[in-house]
Simulated assay, not measured.
Amino acid sequence: MNTAVRSTSLDPAVAARLKRNADGLVAAVVQEHGTGTVLMVAWMDDEALHRTLTTGRGTYWSRSRQDYWVKGETSGNVQRVRSVALDCDGDTVLVTVDQTGPACHTGTHSCFDTDVLMSADD
């Protein structure tokens, strides 16, 4: 359980629309502005979403570290947020970003660059 969730200033109307998992999180699909490439998937709680909306920097909840992380804060691979949209079910947000450097912690542009299981282009 995400016990580190703090009180937040997230707009109550937005918070009411979120359908969180048992840990209080929603999935965040991060897409590159301009190309449409899906860069990564991360997790957000209300506070991470609030920080993303107010700072314009991709901010997520790290399940392994049990803490917030701002993409690029230590690596320099910054995400400048262009838009944030909530899906029809309220359980996923789409974060469209301008990505500086690789988005994946492995050093690739996208977390989906290496293990393509099927492609209709082949």
Score class of each variant (00 low, 15 high):
residue 1 M to R: 14
residue 1 M to P: 09
residue 2 N to R: 12
residue 6 R to W: 04
residue 6 R to M: 12
residue 8 T to I: 06
residue 9 S to T: 09
residue 11 D to L: 03
residue 12 P to S: 14
residue 13 A to N: 12
residue 13 A to Q: 15
residue 13 A to W: 07
residue 14 V to R: 08
residue 15 A to D: 10
residue 15 A to M: 05
residue 17 R to W: 01
residue 18 L to F: 06
residue 18 L to M: 11
residue 19 K to D: 08
residue 23 D to S: 14
residue 24 G to V: 07
residue 28 A to N: 13
residue 30 V to H: 05
residue 32 E to V: 06
residue 34 G to E: 05
residue 34 G to A: 05
residue 35 T to N: 06
residue 37 T to F: 05
residue 40 M to N: 05
residue 40 M to H: 01
residue 41 V to Y: 02
residue 41 V to N: 11
residue 42 A to D: 01
residue 43 W to D: 02
residue 44 M to E: 01
residue 44 M to Q: 11
residue 45 D to N: 05
residue 46 D to Q: 01
residue 46 D to Y: 00
residue 48 A to E: 01
residue 48 A to V: 02
residue 49 L to E: 00
residue 49 L to K: 00
residue 51 R to K: 15
residue 52 T to K: 00
residue 53 L to P: 00
residue 53 L to D: 00
residue 55 T to Y: 03
residue 55 T to Q: 02
residue 56 G to A: 05
residue 57 R to V: 03
residue 58 G to T: 07
residue 58 G to N: 13
residue 60 Y to N: 10
residue 61 W to S: 03
residue 61 W to Y: 13
residue 62 S to F: 11
residue 65 R to E: 11
residue 65 R to I: 06
residue 67 D to I: 09
residue 68 Y to F: 14
residue 68 Y to R: 07
residue 68 Y to I: 07
residue 69 W to T: 10
residue 70 V to Q: 12
residue 75 S to V: 08
residue 75 S to F: 10
residue 76 G to H: 07
residue 77 N to R: 06
residue 79 Q to Y: 15
residue 81 V to H: 03
residue 82 R to V: 08
